[in-house]
Amino acid sequence: MGAPPDISAAAAFMERRHRWRPAEALPWLAAVAAFFLFPDYTAFGTQVLIMILFALSLDLIMGYAGIVTLGHAAYFGAGAYAAGMLSAHLGWGEPLTGLMIAGLTAAAVGFVSGVVLLRYHGLTLLMLTLATAIMLQELANVQEEITGGFDGLLGISIDPIFGLFENDLWGRTYYWYALIVLFALFLIARRIVYSPFGQSLSGIRENVGRMHAIGSPVHRRLVTVYTISAGMAGIAGGLFAQSNAFVTLDVLSFARSGAVLIMLILGGTGRLYGAFVGATVYMVLEDELAKLSPEFWEFGIGLLLVLTVLFARRGLLGLIEDLGARFGKAKP
C-alpha cells in the first residue's frame, strides 16, 4: 500500500521546493538585455550589479536569519580596502585573486566581529553593528599612510581579467565581470537558502527560543551565516574598488549601511530576488531624481520607502507576487 496522496504531495513539495522556476531567468535576462539596450550606462549598470550583490549578502543575514544590522558597510568596506590596498601598495593587480582576498578579509572581519556581536540581540545588537562600522571607518581614517585616509586610496591599477580582457572607457568588461561574479555568488546563496542549514536560519528568525529548545547551536549557525554574508559583502566591495580604481572612506559609511538596508526593504527581504529589485529601483531612482532635483532626490527615495513599508510590507517583489497571484487567479 502506497502512502496516501496528501503525504506524497507534501514529500513532493519538499523535494521540488529548491527547483528553478521559469521566472527566475528574468533578472538575468534583464541584466543581459540592459547591456545592449543602454550601452551608455554600462558603468552605472556595473555599480547596480555591485549593490545587488551587497544587498544579497544582507538578505542572507537579515531576510533569512533575522539579524538586523546598521553596519553592513563594515564588510563591504573591508573588502574594498583589501582589494584596493593589494594593488596600491603591493602592486597586486590580478583581479580574481584580488576579489578572493577581498572576500576572505571581509569574512575574517565578519567572523571575529560576529562571534562577539551575535551574542546579543535586539537594540543592543543593532547598536553594536553600527558601532563596528563606525570604528572601522575611524580606523581607516586614522591609518592614512595605508588607507589614504580622508583623501581616499589612490594608485589602484587592475590587470586585465584572465590577462585578456582589459577594461575599457565605458566599463563594458567590468559589467560582464560583475555580472558573472554576482551570478556565481547568487548560486551559492541560493543553495544555502534551500539547504537544511538555510531552513534552520528561518527557524532562528521565526522563533529563536524554540531553536534552542530543539537543540540547535544557534550562535554557531549565526556566526557561520554572518561570516559568509560578510565575505560576500567583501567581494562586492572588492568589485567596487576594482571597477572604480578608487576607494574612499565612504565605502565604510553609515550612509552606505543605511542605503543597502533600504534597498533590501524596498525590494523585499528573505526572497533572494528582493535584492535585485530593490538595488535597481533605488539606484535608478537616485540617478533620475538627482537629475531632476539634485537637492531633493532623497525625498523621493524616502517617500517610496514610506509607501513600501506601509502598503507593501513584503517589498516591491512581494507586491509583484501578490499582483501576479491575483492576475493569475482572475485569468484561469
Binding site: 507534501a10 537544511p196 534552520s200 528561518s202 522563533n207
Partner: peptide, 30 residues
C-alpha cells in the same frame, strides 16, 4: 512555533537538528 513556516517545515526543523542534517548548507533540504 515557527509561525511563518509550514507545519511540515516546523517538524522538519527538529528532525534535521537531531539527525545533524541541519549543519548541511549545500544539499537541498528536500
Amino acid at each position: 512555533l515557527f509561525a511563518g513556516l509550514t507545519v511540515l517545515e516546523n517538524v522538519y526543523m527538529a528532525v534535521a537538528e537531531r539527525r545533524g542534517a541541519a549543519n548541511d548548507l549545500w544539499r537541498p533540504a528536500g
